[in-house]
Write a protein that binds this DNA or RNA. Structure first.
Lengths: 211, 211, 211, 211
DNA sequence: TATGAATGAGAATTCATTCAT
DNA sequence: GATGAATGAATTCTCATTCAT
């Protein structure tokens, strides 16, 4: 992560030999984005201050405005990464493993798991309508893809059912991250898998292969 | 709501009928509480300003501090009403109609439906640990009651499954209230019932009578 | 104090038999004034709230405005009583016992000693120029009277010296009331007398009889 | 004070020479501290608003919180400077010139005399106990040092007497600064010296050399 | 590119005062 | 006369943002 690659300037400067990689716009942008993702996802937009983010990133506050125009711009960038994460994930989505997919996405415990954070981000709002529209469209797309995978006769009903499964996913992520409700909060991926399989099989009838 | 009692003067003067029933502490407390419930539930704690609430209630801002000590005190009062609402609702919960219960609670569309608002409030945090503990305990209690109703052999597994159903409920409420995702957002109680029945039957095996 | 004298109305009213002496304007004015004196003297004008005073007096806040027009009016009334107290005291001032007088005024320990409170009040300001002028004139008068008592050849120098003695008096009252500096704060009248005698004898040369 | 350094442009433009030396954190902190000292000393803690102070310092209000955390933090910083001033002054205190010392400290008339302001600050309270303890300890220390200088047989009595002299000092400063009582308020250092010599000689017997 | 000083708008809260009963 | 509900003007403090270096 912070390991300096080959292309660094030779350490000729003697005053600050320890600091690596200063004045690297790309890296600064990146650490800001990561810090922002984590805090926006965890605490929400309004509660999080730009100073919190900058401090967590180990970077000067003013750089947020420099690179992202505004706090809202930073949030939008976070959402964009979330959208990308979710989209990339969809492509690898195993057709006959929806329950497995949810369990693995939702069941991660490491604090900076990308997809879990992405889902939380999609639930946060900055109040800006344009950004909200982005959230809406992504969540809609996800449910559509899930409905398509599930098949079924009535496409309209399939979409509704897929959105209910999506609601379950988001609900689990929410409950696990904010309140520490047991046993849900500390359930492992394994423990979640069985009930989720039952759920998906029942709600999305066409989704299951006889596995 | 604003229904005027019997003794009101006939509404002949149109410029300033002014509000009837002024200088009524109980009523003021009440309208503040209702306004706060609505806004806290819809927008969250941090985003909502006390001035917003007071304006929505048609009341002077300082009265929030008079009656509830602080913004946080008002939020706590809102959560307490939410807890009461949820508890009262649990008692009337039909043993063999969990899916019906969820559908009716979640499917309401009127803006000030008490139980839907109560559920949203339970997802909002002011950051105060003591109040968060209240939220946690109520949501835990709800899932425990649901697990008990569902029966089943393994009580631990039953609780986890009940919490997944609770997650579905909260997820649906969230998706319906904030983003306008279709068809979920405008699905009627009737339309939600069928998939929810499938879901509950599958996730909470002991819960269903042969209906 | 609160014992009800003979002239009370016969206890015909049955609802509130315990409350004695309600609706007595004179008494209300009086308890407010006493409470205000105590708090203004102890804490100062700005820090003291009218609600504090009303509560201490066991009386509704609005009555302060009713009887004294405003917080400032109440303060002025307090100062007026302080002026009266000081004036009355001056008349009884023993010609050849200035030190004794100071010691007794300053050495009192009971919390509501009138003269000590009066002196503290004369050091407090509400910011109103007119009232400040009142404070100034009274303190000037006190020092003039002391200078006259002290006699001495040069009247101008005598006045300056008297004001220094007055400064000592006020300084002692201040130090004893706010900070708890030892041994000054808990020194008895007796203990203060000897150094004060030395001081007065030295600063106001004409003041002492061969006693 | 506003003395301009060498490199300044000649004062040809009269409308907006604007302030030189902007964006200097140390300077900003300093002007805030000085403005605060002056106003806190003159008007007291409660009466003085942070906006007053910031305006007097020609600086944005928010900087008070930036540099001193809070109004109370600023007050504490003021007191700390006052303590420093008093301590430094004590060291230079001439053993056999207590009266001279008081006269010079008290007799200054310029508005921003450090030691006079320091003494006034030590009489002001913000209501915070921790800060009050600081005030108390400093005033105690001053009186102890004075008692030690005075010598005398009974150390306990010497301390009480020293505190009476301190009371005189503080009383004179108070009377001179707030009310404009004559002749005390406009007495020069010279005029104060003679009576103060008499006072010190009488109250602190061991203090005087045969001068 | 990066820094940290400075700014102004807006937040919650307190408080003297006025009004209606 | 007395009560307590209501009001509006402050006050302190926070925060996103901009400026100067």
């Amino acid at each position: 992560m912070t390991a300096s690659p080959a292309g660094d300037p030779p350490a000729t400067c003697d005053d600050a030999p320890i600091e690596r990689r200063r004045r690297d716009a790309g890296r600064t942008r990146h650490v800001l984005l990561e810090a922002a993702r984590a805090r926006f996802a965890r605490d929400g937009y309004a509660v999080t201050t730009v100073r919190d983010i900058a401090e967590e990133a180990g970077v000067n506050v003013a750089l947020i405005n420099r690179y992202f125009m505004s706090k809202e711009g930073l949030f939008e960038a976070c959402l964009t990464t979330a959208v990308t994460d979710v989209r990339r994930d969809e492509n690898g989505l195993p057709i006959d493993g929806i329950a497995e997919g949810i369990a693995s996405r939702v069941g991660s415990s490491t604090d900076d798991d990308r997809l879990r954070v992405a889902l939380l981000l999609l639930l946060r709002s900055s109040g800006d309508d344009r950004i909200d529209e982005l959230r809406r469209s992504v969540l809609s797309a996800v449910s559509e893809k899930m409905a398509a995978a599930a098949g079924g006769t009535d496409p309209d009903s399939a979409l509704l059912r897929a959105q209910i499964v999506l609601a379950t996913t988001l609900g689990i992520v929410t409950l696990r991250s904010s309140l520490g409700i047991q046993p849900l909060s500390s359930a492992t991926e394994q423990q979640l898998l069985e009930p989720l399989r039952d759920l998906v099989r029942a709600v999305l009838p066409g989704a299951e292969t006889p596995s």
